[in-house]
């Protein structure tokens, strides 16, 4: 074939091929450009800028901007409010996390069988997820309202119990927020676990039953190991969401009573937009980013390793 072409023609063909290649590359850049511009402007540069700002004393009021190196990070290590906001974030994660997994798994196990009205149940348990945090906040501020103004207290009262000031009580506020979070989000975990349950081969259960295993043994040795991947997925998402917790607490307690439920992101928000300390706020934001970055890397590493096995 090659010898049938004249040398000049082969050269021309090669030229037009490479021309076409270059034109294609140009078109590809055009396709990517609009996305890339917005990506660089609103995601990539802000990360670098955020770090740069965190190296400054950057007060909007009085436009006081001065380079101070890592000073903000030093201050942060001594800042009691920073450490307490970390504690509150961890406390929230420890209260809501296990609850979300247990309730999500329980709902999935109950629904993983042919029952009448299963679609309605699934819709009902998932539905709170799509409500905005403000709607959930307004509803549960009333469900847990103090004295005789909230539903829970009215029900408790009629059952002969003591009323509580749920969201205004230092000991009860965070658990009450966690309960609200479970109502709001357990349905999401339920969907993930349902998908996982449907992936476990039925033959395993039949084989187990033939061997005389009871329901607990089947659950412990077939269901739980079979749910390894969804469990991990849910766990990672939940850790990430917990580190970022803020809107739900903002609408339920505004961080109160006496700052006892103020999480990291709320503290960062207050420093930045109430005290207008952009430098210190950015240092807090960068710490948050570092946390999440490590979690993401660990997650990617773990999932890749699992796939190589």
């Amino acid at each position: 074939m090659q010898s049938a072409l004249k040398p000049g023609a082969a050269q021309r063909l090669a030229n037009s091929l490479s021309q076409r290649k270059w034109r294609d590359a140009g078109i590809a850049y055009l396709f990517i450009l609009p996305f890339l511009l917005l990506y660089i402007l609103f995601t990539f540069l802000p990360i670098l800028q955020g770090f740069w700002i965190s190296l400054h004393k950057w007060d909007v009021i009085g436009s006081n901007v001065r380079f101070i190196g890592l000073r903000n990070y030093q201050i942060l290590l001594q800042d009691k409010l920073f450490w307490s906001s970390l504690e509150h974030t961890a406390f929230f994660a420890l209260l809501a996390g296990p609850g979300l997994i247990v309730v999500g798994l329980a709902l999935a196990l109950l629904l993983n069988r042919p029952i009448r009205g299963i679609g309605i149940y699934r819709t009902l348990f998932y539905m709170p997820n799509i409500l905005s945090v403000t709607v959930v906040g307004l509803v549960f501020a009333r469900v847990f309202a103090p004295a005789d103004r909230g539903l829970v207290n009215v029900v408790l009262d009629s059952a002969g119990g003591q009323p509580h000031s749920w969201l205004l009580d230092v000991a009860l506020a965070m658990p009450t927020i966690a309960v609200t979070k479970i109502w709001w989000s357990a349905g999401f975990n339920m969907l993930i676990f349902l998908a996982g349950l449907q992936d476990i081969p039925q033959e395993l259960y039949e084989a187990g039953r033939v061997d005389g295993a009871n329901r607990w043994v089947l659950f412990r040795h077939i269901t739980l190991p079979g749910l390894r991947r969804p469990m991990l997925f849910v766990l990672v998402l939940q850790v990430i969401a917990s580190v970022q917790v803020f809107p739900l607490i903002e609408v339920l307690t505004q961080g109160g009573p006496a700052g006892s439920t103020r999480p990291l992101v709320m503290y960062l928000f207050e420093r930045t937009f109430e005290y207008w300390q952009m430098g210190y706020g950015s240092a807090l934001a960068f710490v948050l980013f570092a946390f999440l970055f490590v979690i993401s890397i660990a997650q990617i590493w773990f999932f890749n390793r699992r796939e190589e096995d």
């Binding site: 990517i32 996305f35 890339l36 990506y39 402007l41 609103f42 995601t43 990539f44 540069l45 802000p46 990360i47 800028q49 955020g50 700002i53 990430i240 970022q244 803020f246 992101v265 960062l268 930045t272 952009m278 706020g281 950015s282 934001a285 960068f286 948050l288 980013f289 999440l292 970055f293 993401s296 890397i297």
Partner: peptide
Amino acid sequence: LFPFVLIGLMVPGQATFIPVYLL
């Protein structure tokens, strides 16, 4: 460029909103 774009998967809004606000 593709890995460069994927960095965005690991960036939460809270990490970027102060510079974006200033912009």
